[in-house]
Amino acid sequence: MTEVAVKVDRLEKDLGSNKVLRGISFEAHSGEIFGLLGPNGAGKTTTLRVICTLLSPDAGSVGVLGFDTQVAPQEVRRRVGVVTAEFGVYPRLSARENIAYFAELSGVLDGEVSRKVDAVIDRLDMGSFAKQRAETLSSGQKQKVAIARAIVHDPPVLMFDEPTSNLDVLASREIRQFMVESKGRGKCVIFSTHVLHDAERLCDRVTIIHQGRVVASGSTAEVRGGFQDLEDSFLSLVEAAK
C-alpha cells in the first residue's frame, strides 16, 4: 500500500445555518488518482477547501502528509496545489509573471524561481504564449496558467476541483492527461467532479458523497459493483440515501 497523503477523519463543517459536511472520512494515497464524487451541493468543494486550509473544520480533522491543517496550515499549503474551474489570473501580468509570482509566494528559493517556471512552462507546452499578458489568453491557455501556478512549487498533493467544467474537449483532454502524468510522478491526485464518465476512466479509488455524507467508498470497480457503469451505481446509491 502506498503512503497516505491526505487523511480526512469525521469531518464536519457548517456554512452559516447550512450543515454542509456531516462526518466525512476518507484517505487518498500518493501515486493514485482519488475521485471525490457527488452531485452539485454534495460538499465536494467545501471538503477540498478544508483540506487546503482555506476553511477550518468544525469537527473532525484533516491531515496532509502528517501535518494537521489546524496545527500547521502553512506546512500544508506548501504541500498542496489546487486547480479549480474558476481559473482567475492577473490580467496585466504575463503568463510567466503570473506563474513566477505564485512560485515566489510558495517559497521557491530566489535562485530557483526562473528555472522552475521555465520547467513548468515546458511541461505544459506554454512557450508560445508565456510572455503574453494574461488578459489576451484563451480560456484553455488561462487554465494552463492556473495549473502551472498550482504545481510550480512541485507539491506532492494536487487537487482538481471540477477542472474541466469551463473547457472545450481539447483542453479537457489535456487536463486529464496531466492528471495521469502527475499520478505517474507519484503525486496524490484528488479529482473532484460530478462528471462520472471522467471519474470512471481516471480514478483508482473513489468516494461518493451526498448531502454531506459518504455513501460509498472504495476502488472504482468496487463502487461500480454489479452495475454497468459508475453512473448507474451512483444514481442507485444517491437514491438509496434519500
Partner: peptide, 9 residues
C-alpha cells in the same frame, strides 16, 4: 484570484 493567493503559504 483571491483563493489562489490565500492558498500560498
Amino acid at each position: 484570484t483571491l483563493e489562489s493567493l490565500l492558498l500560498t503559504p
